[in-house]
Simulated assay, not measured.
Amino acid sequence: MSIPTTIPTIAAIDNSALAAQLDQRINNKTKPLGSLGMLETLAKQIGLIQQTTDISLKQAVILVFAADHGIVAEGISAYPQDVTWQMVANFLAKGAAINVFAQQNHCDLQIIDAGVNHNFGSRDGLIDRKLAHGTRNFAQLPAMTPETCHRALASGMALVAELQGNVIGFGEMGIGNTTAAAALMHKLTGIPVAQCVGAGTGLSSDGVLHKQRVIEAAVALHSTAIEPLDILATFGGLEIAMMVGAMLQAAERRMVLLIDGFIVTSALLVAARISPAILDYCVFSHCSNEHGHREMLQHLHARPLLQLSLRLGEGTGCALALPLLHASVNFLNQMATFESAQVSEKS
């Protein structure tokens, strides 16, 4: 499968002159050098993304993509597939954790039906981008056709093209999607399947072993899937593919990308194989408690902002990390300098 010509072009953000200006501005604040730790790193990264020393955050939004997975037919989930659509209904009723955390942090929230196996009809607050009623069972067939995969990428790009802000977080919902993410992780990193597979929604140790064996058999069946979009179409989900497109478009627009947990990072693995420069735009909100996420982050040389033993998904890590982005912007814009405060600098 060739990469479609519509894939966004992402510029690397390395700018040594601007980086030096940001360092000087950060270091001139009334504090010992480096004493704000990762907030300083974050302020500098935001400045390089926005190509300015006058950084700002505008209209932060979290997109939650929902879809179902045919692989659930293999008994890889502790929950039935109906939970996907039921949780989407919960999002729309503002009853989920992501609703609480997004509202708490004054963050817009968009819920996207990428491919849920349910007919919602017209529902306030639901963005209908359904491409199918879930993927096929990749234990037997590729999860998506190349055409469906490309349509999912294009749908994700189109959603981001309509946004007005400069900060975007990514969340997901889909029973079975930790199995898809583990398969993607294995294929894209070479890490053994046993180190990629976790409990997901709460599998027993026997359930985790069964999930591992299902993935290993599927990987053997689809051994010719080598290129990143082939891998995505073969093992991914509609919500994961849509996120890949959204991430690529957001980076082209020089937005700050807030990355959530295991599933969202699996989408980023695909996007980074297509366009490695996307990693310059990514802020990793947290290290998930889902087995394998830590190794994903190590593979990407990523430093997460938080470690709270989360494994819920939904974009909850993004919402919880958002105040740290505001803190990094605010200290750079509002904190006094040694000169303005008439504070003596280190001799």
Rank of each mutant, 00 (worst) to 15 (best):
I3F: 15
I3K: 11
T6N: 15
P8L: 05
P8E: 04
A20N: 11
I26E: 05
M38S: 14
L39V: 09
L42Y: 13
I49Q: 02
Q51N: 13
K58M: 12
V61S: 11
V61D: 12
I71P: 12
I76S: 02
D82M: 11
T84N: 00
W85L: 06
M87H: 12
A96C: 12
N99H: 09
N99F: 13
I111Q: 09
I112S: 04
G115L: 08
N119A: 11
G121P: 01
G125Y: 10
G125E: 05
G134F: 08
Q140C: 14
E147I: 11
H150M: 09
F170H: 04
G176R: 03
T178R: 01
A182F: 03
V197S: 06
V208E: 04
V208I: 14
H210P: 02
H210E: 07
A218L: 01
V219T: 05
S223T: 13
A225I: 08
A225G: 04
I231L: 08
V244D: 02
G245H: 06
M247L: 09
E252A: 10
R254E: 08
F262K: 04
P276Y: 12
L279P: 09
H291S: 06
H291W: 09
Q298K: 11
L300T: 10
H301E: 10
L306H: 07
L308N: 11
G315V: 06
N333W: 14
M335L: 07
E339R: 00
Q342T: 05
Q342F: 15
E345L: 15
